[in-house]
Amino acid sequence: MKGFEQLLRQNVENLFLVLRPPMGKRNLEDIDVSFGFIFSAEPEHLYIVSSSRGEIKTPSLAIEKTPAEILPWSDFYKNVFRWMNTEPAPEEMPLSKVEYYDVSSCSEFKNIVGSEVLSIEGISFHNSSLYFGTKINFDTDHIISTPIEEGNTTETLKFHNYNNLRKFEQIGKIAFQELVPSSQDLDIHLTE
């Protein structure tokens, strides 16, 4: 099992948006989207940074095999809006359905693909040791992953800039702390 510290100094070869179809959602900031990384050193694995699905949301790292079905970036918003306007019967859409969009060659992510993970920070409320989010830093960009009501949202400098952290700042002062290997309570699981 590999923890978040295993992402440090890894070079991002491919980048994916991992989407749980947002059936009936009204706003783009409410869609459940996470980032998936394929690193040069491990091209057969997809590392997905997200939020746990439990009652208390904490950062999670899932390691999966490279997805068999990959959708192009050009379909992302078209499919998101289609899902947002859909209310299928529960038997028509399994809750575990996930779509993988390859965004490796998109200009919005050019400062991440081909870059090295320089540092990883846990996001918590000031004076709390329980992290609710993750910030992954690259040379000229970053990825912030935080929980939303029904999953996870993620943003970079050029993608999905809804500043979900503002919602947490309304509750209390937030703090960023660089992660130190084996000292953090993070949800990490391997799925094959």
Rank of each mutant, 00 (worst) to 15 (best):
F16P: 05
T58V: 14
K173V: 15
G133M: 11
Y162P: 01
T153K: 02
R53M: 02
P147K: 02
I148M: 09
L46Y: 01
K2L: 10
I174Q: 05
E121A: 11
S124D: 00
Y162G: 04
D102L: 12
L15P: 01
N27A: 09
N85G: 14
P94A: 12
E29Y: 06
R166Y: 12
I70L: 08
W83Y: 15
V98L: 10
P22W: 03
H142I: 03
P21V: 06
G151M: 07
L95V: 10
F109A: 08
T154S: 15
F76C: 10
E149F: 02
L17P: 01
P181L: 07
N152Y: 06
K110F: 04
F132K: 01
P22T: 09
M23G: 06
S115K: 14
A175K: 11
S50E: 12
S183K: 07
V33S: 09
K97C: 14
Q10L: 13
F168R: 01
R9V: 07
P94M: 06
D75P: 05
I38T: 15
I144Y: 02
D32H: 11
I144D: 01
T86M: 13
T86S: 15
E44I: 06
G133V: 07
P72S: 13
G3A: 03
T140G: 05
V180T: 13
V117P: 02
T191W: 06
A41Q: 11
L19D: 00
F39W: 01
I63E: 14
R9Q: 15
V80P: 03
W73R: 15
M1W: 05
T58S: 14
F76D: 11
E149A: 06
I63W: 02
H189N: 11
S183F: 12
E13Y: 11
S74G: 08
S145H: 09
P21C: 14
K57H: 14
V18Q: 03
E69V: 06
Y100T: 11
F138I: 09
K158D: 14
T58I: 13
E108M: 12
E5V: 05
Q184I: 07
F159P: 03
F168W: 08
E64I: 10
F37S: 12
Y101A: 15
F138D: 04
P90K: 01
L71Y: 10
E64V: 07
